[in-house]
Design a protein around this nucleic acid. Structure first.
Length: 581
RNA sequence: CGGGGAGUAGCUCAGCUUGGCCAGAGCGCUGCGUUCGGGACGCAGAGGUCGCAGGUUCAAAUCCUGUCUCCCCGACCA
């Protein structure tokens, strides 16, 4: 490709609305432009990168035996109502009504559609296992798109769905995908961490997340130093805190007047206590049921763990009228005492159960209660009371006695065992060898294509631009003629032709009247791993220069052998990243 | 959805407090010339309904009201 025949609008200035490196550099390198919040147009260089990523994904998926299909991006709302996910997904699900009044959704993922397909077409165990995938645009009406393409409304995702006859077979399908994912991310040049994950709204029994450690990531990875465990924050288990020694003869509970002091912070300020002395009481709704979650004041509730503790039901914070009805007080003054009878379930975090004494809301507007002893002043056991881990791990927590460490990461892929959640609801059944009708056992497997690009830039860039792995760079080689004169342009053209003939992906910066400095900067900004500089200085001695984007020094090679040298360099860079081929 | 910030030339921004001068700068863009190995320089030029709609005023980019969009923090989120 010639620079003058393509369209790569690089810019010097940092765009005002780009906060993180990957976003800024993707705009500056002319890879993409924003259309609206969370939606981007990919320009030729950016689209080339995405296509190269998709090629790698496609290659590994095909090798793993998965079959590529394409499902509609507009799907009937009715199908989502059958699985209840129209409710679970909530506002994130993009919807519209067509001219006939039919409800439609914009595909955020495709479990319903693919299961519906299986329900119609899979009848026999002889057709299983099967794994179907697609790579295309997905839409989620995010509350708050941010960080460029890391959380956008429209994005490209590879989503695969496996169907198996039994658990053993599902395990095998899952492991095959797990292995394919390792090879995909490796080939894309990403250092990644695999963490145990919660399954969220998508449902199911087991899941791993593939995460690229990076300070700008939205996910929190929790791990033990010895590497024996890694989880995302939603899943990270926490050892129960040791029971605190109760001071002798804690006085009876005492109500204290705390006018207009509702938040934990305000109460601490008012009563001169610390958040860890507080007991926080949160009221949740799960359909018609009301659930009380009790955690220590300095802890955060983990909605995934809470969802698990209520058997996977969809939960949300109760609305104000419900809270007022249950606590008989304004919002901000809830406490666990006396609530047991009024609600369906009380869940108490072990850290609260371990407290010797604490302060809670009084279930009375403008009042809190001191000297509250868990177990004495409110029950820790009972038919609708459970002590269970429902909070996020924090610094200082342990698992199996080992300290938990924290670091941020970008989620680039996730694999799930779904089981029969969708096949039950959508009737995806088959006859086994004995003639018994059984639901298909499903797995689903996603990869964020755009996130692979963004995370590659996040973890590898300098002040000049991205330093891209050769497997996903828009071009493998850029030829930069530095200076004018036919001798230079002829030599550059000559190398360009030779490389193109050998199917090296090469970009020739043939822009006339552009100073060398500008060309060098654009080459760096594009992150192209190998640069060939053809200039007067070296050419006088019969040489050109080869420079790696990742290194600061160039080396001189004879013009005559330049193409061969470049090919050898490209191959050695590729060899590092290619797994088993 | 709560809190904060911002919309003025293609981009980055100044001007607004205290209404009135011709609506400005840098970058980019067009032409000519000089340069030519790390974002050169000179000269000449094109380019703006000051987000939108009302209002106040002799007069509004500037003051008031409404509205839309974008960004950040939070909440939320496969």
């Amino acid at each position: 490709m010639r620079f003058t025949k393509t369209f790569i609008p690089t810019v010097k200035e940092v765009p005002a609305d780009a906060e993180i490196a990957s976003h800024q550099l993707m705009i500056r390198a002319g890879l993409m432009r924003k259309l609206a919040s969370g939606t981007y147009t990919y320009l030729p260089a950016g689209w080339r990168i995405l296509q190269k990523i998709m090629d790698i994904v496609r290659d590994e998926m095909n090798k793993a035996g998965a079959l590529e299909i394409s499902m509609p991006m507009v799907q009937p709302l009715e199908l989502w109502q059958k699985t209840g996910r129209d409710v679970d997904y909530g506002e994130t699900l993009g919807r519209f009504t067509d001219r006939h009044g039919r409800g439609n959704v914009l595909m955020p993922t495709a479990e319903e559609v693919v299961t519906c397909l299986a329900a119609g077409e899979i009848n026999s165990y002889k057709q299983l296992p099967i794994n179907l995938y697609q790579i295309n645009a997905k839409y989620r009406d995010e509350f708050r798109p941010r960080f460029g393409v890391l959380r956008s409304r429209e994005f490209i995702m590879k989503d695969a769905y496996s169907f198996d006859v039994d658990d053993e077979s599902l395990d095998k399908s899952y492991r095959i995908m797990y292995g394919a994912y390792c090879r995909i991310f490796r080939r894309c040049g990403l250092e990644y961490v695999i963490v145990e994950a919660e399954t969220g709204e998508i449902g199911g029994s087991g899941s791993h997340q593939f995460t690229v450690p990076c300070d700008n990531g939205e996910d929190v990875i929790v791990y033990t130093e010895d590497g024996s465990g890694a989880w995302n924050l939603e899943k990270a288990p926490v050892d129960p805190a040791p029971k605190q020694q109760a001071p002798k003869n804690v006085p009876d509970t005492e109500e204290v007047h705390t006018p207009n002091v509702g938040s934990i912070e305000a109460v601490c300020d008012f009563l001169k206590c610390k958040p860890q002395d507080m007991i926080k009481t949160l009221i949740y709704s799960a359909g018609p049921d009301t659930i009380v979650a009790v955690i220590r004041g300095d802890h955060d509730l983990n909605t995934e763990k809470l969802t698990g503790a209520v058997g996977g039901k969809h939960i949300e914070l109760a609305d104000e009228p419900t809270i007022e009805k249950v606590t008989a007080a304004a919002v901000g003054f809830a406490g666990p005492m006396g609530l047991t009878e009024k609600v369906n379930l009380v869940l108490i975090d072990p850290a609260v159960a371990a407290m010797a004494v604490g302060i809670t809301g009084a279930n009375k507007t403008d009042y809190h209660v001191k000297n509250v002893v868990p177990g004495r002043d409110f029950a820790l056991e009972g038919k609708n009371i459970k002590v269970v881990d429902i909070r996020n791990a924090v610094e200082g927590d342990t698992h199996d006695g080992k300290p938990l460490l924290f670091r941020r990461g970008i989620e680039v892929g996730q694999v799930f065992k779904l089981g029969t959640k969708y096949s039950d609801k959508l009737d995806a059944k088959f006859l086994d060898a004995e003639g018994n009708e059984k639901p298909c056992l499903m797995g689903c497997y996603g990869i964020g294509i755009n996130r692979i690009l963004a995370s590659a830039i996040e973890i590898s860039h300098d002040d000049k631009g991205p330093i891209l792995p050769i497997t996903i760079a828009p071009w493998e080689v850029i030829i930069t003629p530095a200076g004018t004169g036919t001798e230079i342009t002829d030599a550059a053209e000559n190398i360009y032709t030779q490389l193109a003939e050998k199917e090296i992906e090469v970009l020739l910066d043939d822009r006339p009247d552009i100073r060398a400095g500008v060309k060098f900067n654009d080459a760096d900004l594009l992150g192209i791993p190998v640069r060939v500089t053809v200039g007067q200085k070296s050419l006088a001695a019969g040489n050109v220069e080869i420079k790696l984007r990742s290194e600061s020094e160039s080396r001189k090679v004879a013009l005559a052998s330049a193409a061969d040298e470049v090919i050898a360099t490209v191959n050695s860079l590729k060899a590092v990243l290619n797994v088993g081929n």
